[in-house]
Amino acid sequence: MSETPTAFATAGAKNTMRMWQLVLLMAATSLGYFVVQLDVSIVNLSLPAIQHYFQIDVAMLQWIVNSYTLSFSVVLLSAGVLGDRYGSKNFLLLGYAVFCAASLACGMAPTVPTMLLARFVQGIGAAIIVPNSL
């Protein structure tokens, strides 16, 4: 019983700090997957407003949804492999940057082709985020 109460307090503080680091890590990685799924839901709910703003038909609305889905599915496996090889943290940060920049471009898109390109790039960012957040 040579340990003093301050040693126990220091160990408890270190354990508490470690716990909060793990909580923040889980929140940061879970946030990526949540944002990707939220984006899909938001766009689906916004389709009538997008149709009204751009004066486009249903076929073009389908391409707005499909451009994201297509790029997401094509890049998903490759992004996971690259994250394994070169570091998941780096690719997760890259995915966040690409996704955020593309989201901004989607919000500011003046034309339908710009919107389609931004949604395509957004899907690439999402495909980088999902496997590297796991």
Rank of each mutant, 00 (worst) to 15 (best):
M1V: 06
M1G: 14
E3Y: 06
E3Q: 11
T6A: 09
A7R: 04
F8I: 08
T10K: 09
G12N: 15
T16Q: 14
M19H: 14
L22W: 11
V23Q: 08
L25Y: 13
L25I: 14
L25N: 08
T29Y: 12
S30L: 10
L31K: 03
Y33P: 03
F34W: 10
V35K: 02
D39V: 00
D39H: 01
V43N: 01
V43F: 00
N44L: 09
N44W: 04
N44D: 10
N44Q: 11
S46Y: 01
P48G: 09
P48R: 09
H52P: 00
Y53L: 12
Q55M: 09
I56S: 05
I56Q: 06
D57F: 07
A59K: 13
A59W: 00
L61R: 03
L61Q: 10
L61W: 03
Q62S: 12
I64R: 01
V65A: 11
V65E: 01
N66S: 15
S67C: 14
F72K: 01
F72R: 01
S73W: 06
L76W: 03
G80P: 02
V81K: 13
L82D: 03
G83A: 07
G83E: 06
D84T: 03
R85E: 02
K89V: 14
N90H: 14
F91G: 04
F91D: 02
G95W: 08
G95T: 06
G95H: 07
Y96H: 04
Y96F: 15
F99Y: 10
A101G: 01
A101H: 01
A102R: 00
S103E: 04
L104K: 04
G107F: 03
A109T: 10
A109V: 09
P110K: 05
T111Q: 11
P113R: 08
M115L: 15
M115V: 04
L116E: 05
L117A: 15
R119A: 00
F120L: 14
V121L: 11
Q122M: 11
G123I: 00
G123M: 03
G123V: 02
G123K: 01
G125M: 07
A126E: 03
A126P: 03
I128W: 06
V130N: 11
P131L: 09
S133V: 07
